[in-house]
């Protein structure tokens, strides 16, 4: 692939010697944004004594939790786009090459994806803020899940798949495919992995496939970057799963909040 193509996108994916790329930063630290915005959503209202005062106003009870989620999601959306625009502006000044139309589309898609990713963590943090009495407990619970899914899921996934489908010895050749598939499936439980996969695909047009590529599927392929639509098609399942995760998380928080006693 011609390296001068999609130069602008490299701004987001290139890392230096001592610094991670923008995409890595978002993948790793984005969850913290969601957790920060959500971990004290309900329990703080409760401990402040404002929740029962709020609930005594002529509003539906679910509007409280809806507002908490929507406010957080709005802030996240604004944050990702501000960051993205800053990054693009700085890049424009530094390299002086304007982004092509396709690059703009890819960046917007990436930023939307990041917003959804952070909203997943926001929803998780709101669940804990409903369930846990203290904001500190909720924060620690959310952070431990974040650490587990971001750092240790990889180890767990390879551990499990190596136990079930060992790749040593003669039978290892037969297990290799199953081992890899299981490893990938387990990793994809983590929103971190999903997001990294999707972000790589959308920011790097030369990624043609995710998952296993066999010799037969490569043979005869044209060595050219994927068009935007095709990249989008590749990550479509990732996006849907992440939206579903956020929606499911919010639904759990919603139901448990509606069943809770209002009293402090």
């Amino acid at each position: 692939m011609d390296s001068s193509e999609f130069l602008f996108l490299k701004l987001f994916t290139t890392s230096g010697n001592s610094i991670y790329s923008f995409a890595t930063f978002i993948a790793f630290l984005g969850p913290l944004v969601g957790i920060t915005l959500g971990f004290d959503a309900i329990n703080n209202e409760r401990s402040q004594g404002t929740l029962n005062r709020l609930a005594a106003q002529p509003i539906y009870r679910d509007s409280i939790i809806n507002a908490k989620f929507l406010a957080g999601a709005t802030v996240i959306l604004m944050l990702t786009f501000t960051l993205g625009l800053f990054m693009s502006g700085a890049g424009l000044l530094l390299i002086g090459i304007p982004p092509s139309g396709e690059e703009v589309c890819r960046i917007i898609a990436y930023l939307l994806l990041s917003a959804v990713y952070m909203s997943v963590w926001l929803a998780l943090a709101i669940i804990f803020s409903v369930v846990c009495k203290h904001a500190a407990t909720a924060a620690l619970a959310s952070i431990s899940i974040w650490l587990f899914l971001s750092l240790f899921m990889d180890l767990v996934a390879s551990g499990i798949s190596n136990v079930l489908f060992p790749v040593e010895g003669i039978q290892g050749y037969g297990n290799m495919m199953k081992n890899y598939e299981l490893d990938l499936a387990l990793n994809r439980i983590s929103p971190y992995y999903l997001f990294t996969e999707a972000a790589t695909t959308i920011l790097n047009p030369s990624v043609r496939s995710i998952g296993i590529v066999t010799m037969s599927s490569v043979s005869g392929a044209i060595d050219a970057p994927l068009p935007f639509g095709q990249s989008l098609l590749l990550i479509w399942p990732h996006l849907v799963v992440m939206i579903a995760l956020a929606a499911a998380g919010f639904a759990i928080a919603y139901v448990s909040f509606m069943r809770q006693e209002i009293r402090a």
Binding site: Q48, G49, T50, N52, R53, A56, A264
Partner: peptide
């Protein structure tokens, strides 16, 4: 409604 431990 004025709750027993009113908060703001």
């Amino acid at each position: 409604y004025l709750p027993d431990s009113v908060g703001f």
